[in-house]
């Protein structure tokens, strides 16, 4: 596994220019270009704010739109990276079939490109936080940690899924459906506190077992409430991510020799 990862580090110049390529490709030729990075989550936030502040109002959250936005940005990072990442190796085309190219670079590139995208979209949050009069405190120092864990989680999943998708082409469609369910069991549009009245098993599944649940809650804690996140939960997620990485890597390794033939 370390060989797989060190190969990525060794090719960092290549990885970086592929990331640049991917970011540039996304916006070349579109009129609004880079603005779409902001526009997409903004529209989504408006939709959710509209729906949820009108119909199911959570009285404990004063600035619901801002609250949703804090969780929505990381979620968009997560889901779009997974969706695009599942196709990373298949989409590699001639790089895989005609050149000697370490295939694990492609999932890494997708994960990185989406991480950069997320970073670029973060400043959009600032005016909302100021408008909602949210505290900016030391807790923000924990943000990079949470992001690092999320990045690792994304890469771990994408590594395995992209390899599986070469062999089973419907993995990406299955993943798309899983993600739409996943969104609603992740505390993005609701808070973990609102689950207190439910059965304990809900809280366990949504806020502890679901790694994105823990991460989304951490973002809410840091950005919206100005608290430090629950470090213990975060550690569990980190360890879980390592397990996923090991499993993903073994999937990746068992399929990688066939990539050039099957694409």
């Amino acid at each position: 596994m370390f060989e797989t990862l060190s190969e990525i580090v060794r090719h960092r110049a290549l990885v970086w220019s592929l990331v640049q390529r991917q970011l540039a490709v996304r916006y070349r030729g579109s009129v609004l270009g880079f603005v779409w990075t902001f526009l997409n989550p903004l529209c989504l936030m408006l939709v959710y704010t509209l729906v949820f502040s009108l119909f199911v109002r959570d009285p404990s959250i004063a600035h619901y739109g801002t609250f949703v936005f804090c969780g929505l940005l990381p979620w968009i990072w997560f889901s779009s990276a997974l969706l695009e990442g599942s196709n990373a190796i298949v989409g590699g085309g001639t790089l895989i079939t005609k050149a000697l190219f370490p295939p694990q670079i492609l999932p890494a590139v997708v994960s990185l490109a989406h991480a950069v995208n997320f970073l670029l979209s973060l400043p959009m949050l600032v005016p909302f936080l100021i408008q909602a009069d949210r505290p900016f405190g030391w807790a923000l120092l924990a943000l990079p940690v949470v992001m690092a864990v999320q990045f690792l989680l994304i890469f771990a999943i994408v590594l395995g899924v992209s390899a599986l998708n070469v062999h089973y082409r419907d993995v990406q469609h299955i993943l798309g459906n899983v993600l739409s369910l996943w969104f609603f069991v992740t505390p993005v549009i609701f808070s973990v506190d609102s689950l207190k009245s439910r059965h304990w098993i809900f809280t366990l599944l949504i806020a502890k077992v679901n790694p994105m649940g823990v991460l989304a809650e951490s973002y809410h804690e840091i950005l919206y409430w100005g608290h430090f996140p629950n470090w213990r939960n975060l550690l569990v997620v980190f360890l879980g991510t390592l397990v996923i990485l090991v499993v993903s890597h073994s999937i990746f390794r068992s399929y990688r020799d066939g990539f050039a033939e099957e694409i």
Binding site: A13, S17, R21, V25, T94, T97, K98, A99, L100, F101
Partner: peptide, 29 residues
């Protein structure tokens, strides 16, 4: 080893020749 099996593997049509030289060169190691 350098393989001239597929010329311009990984060329991206939207990019300039200059950008593709760097990208393809990196791909070729």
């Amino acid at each position: 080893v350098s393989a001239l099996i597929e010329l311009g593997a990984g060329f991206h049509p939207e990019f300039t020749g200059r950008e593709n030289i760097f990208l393809n060169g990196l791909v070729l190691g």
